[in-house]
Amino acid sequence: MRAIITVIGKDKAGIIAEVCTLLASCKINILDISQTVMQGFFTMTMLVDLTESTVDFTTLSDSLKAKGEEMGLNIRIQREDIFDLMHKI
């Protein structure tokens, strides 16, 4: 299964490192990353592959959320399908 992780919040050092470390520890492969910083506001979207993941979706979603709260960011994971279907015919 593939999913999209979005990280939104105030920019600071180490955001990507922290998120990637968490993902690596769960054996989640990052397929693509895109990020922008506008007026200090950080937005990152990541396409990830959960095939080899060592944790289930709910646990992963909860730990990403917790990591976000720890860093003052909003981090969420959603299955890729929703974006495919909403924006493409």
Binding site: D32, T43, F83, D84, H87
Partner: peptide, 12 residues
Amino acid sequence: MHNQKEILSTID
């Protein structure tokens, strides 16, 4: 990769 604008519009 998905269009970031579309992803963010869904989240909004």
